[in-house]
Design a protein around this nucleic acid. Structure first.
Lengths: 211, 211
DNA sequence: CTCTGCGTGGACCTTATAGTCCAATTTAGC
DNA sequence: GCTAAATTGGACTATAAGGTCCACGCAGAG
């Protein structure tokens, strides 16, 4: 850190391909562990073991655990948004919304509701502990909700959704139903409440269909 | 623990009023700390300091931290259900549902959404770590949802809610909207999404009103 | 081929935290 | 009051976890 000659402080010193690969391996392993065990309950030793790295490599890439956590948050946000973009960017019909719902429910059914939403569980655990993580998560939720709202707007443009509907509010409501559904499913170890919650939100949106 | 003559193992040895008061002080302090800092981030030393007790007293009343956590979960569940009973047991009209919504939103606005729902945040943190806590939380959610469903049924009996409405499903959907709203509000430090989510759920229920 | 510096392994240190123990004190029945 | 049990205070231990350090390895530029 006090080595002169290199960059001034400790900004992203230039990484080789190998370094980048190690870093990715660490973040991936940490993301998996933190999803299953929770952020706090995941130790750096867990991460080290799961990623087949050593302590020095962790601290080569991250100043401390908080920074690793933030990298995990960013990574998860990126992953989920990319996945959701795949589902939502072509959304143009209510049927598409139903398919989206089915995909989420099915994915969650694989683990019987356990662990909840990767974004939601981190949001709950970190929002009041790490403001930077909180902001990243808030932005991720906003983008995710935005994808839904955009889809609803396309439905309006296509004439299938009434102009009296407010896509932004409907999207927020749908996202809340999704997150609440995840939480209840996680607690009950049963995805039924998640289905019920999403169905109710979709029923409500259905009431705005024009045909 | 190996003291002969008293009860066989270590069942709730008989407590005096003083002991009971100490125990309550510990659980209360722990509940507050865990709500604000999270369960994992709350140390027994924090609890000890906040409750003005000593280590031996903690271990007098709880075998280990997990047991304290379970006591906190049970306590919170009891508190919230008691509070919600006050609001919901006389619920007979849609207006009453709106008042209930307003009360929850207002309470959450006091802290700008921070910390979320006391039950929800514990559910998220504990569901995949402590199965006993998870079950208690699941039952608490079920009871809470049941209070809402019972209110909706009274509305049906009074003729203001259509018989085609399914009170149980609507209650689950409303609870999910509430919990999802809490989570989004906590993440954004802004209660707007909570309001939006609850409004959407209420709008949907409104569509089943008969007059 | 060899020199430079990023990249790596893992021992080591420090602190914080869960959990133990026992002597001293208070309480409650007799 | 007296005695036994309940209660309390706080020092003490063990360990797990975060974080530091340094010697060595390796890969690419000259």
């Amino acid at each position: 850190m006090t080595r002169p000659g290199s960059a001034t402080v400790a900004p992203p010193r230039q990484l080789t391909a190998r370094g980048l690969a190690t870093r990715a391996r660490i973040v991936d392993a940490a993301a998996d562990l933190m999803y299953v065990k929770g952020v706090n309950a995941t130790t750096l030793d867990d991460v080290r073991a799961a990623s087949s790295t050593s302590k020095s490599q962790l601290y080569q890439h991250f100043a401390d655990k908080d920074e690793l956590v933030r990298a995990v948050v960013a990574r998860r946000a990126g992953q989920i948004l990319e996945r959701e973009q795949g589902y939502l960017q072509r959304l143009r019909s209510f049927r598409g919304l139903e398919r989206w719902r089915d995909a989420l429910v099915q994915r969650n059914a694989l683990q019987n509701g356990a662990y909840g939403c990767a974004l939601g569980s981190m949001a709950s655990e970190l929002s009041d502990q790490d403001d930077e993580a909180r902001q990243t998560l808030a932005e991720a939720f906003a983008e995710w909700t935005g994808l839904i709202a955009a889809g609803l707007r396309r439905m309006q443009d296509a004439g299938s959704l009434s102009d009296t509907a407010d896509p932004d509010k409907l999207a927020v409501g749908l996202m809340a139903a999704l997150q609440g559904g995840y939480l209840l499913a996680e607690t009950q170890h049963d995805i039924t409440p998640m289905e019920t919650a999403l169905d109710m939100a979709l029923d409500h949106i259905r009431s705005f269909l024009t045909k």
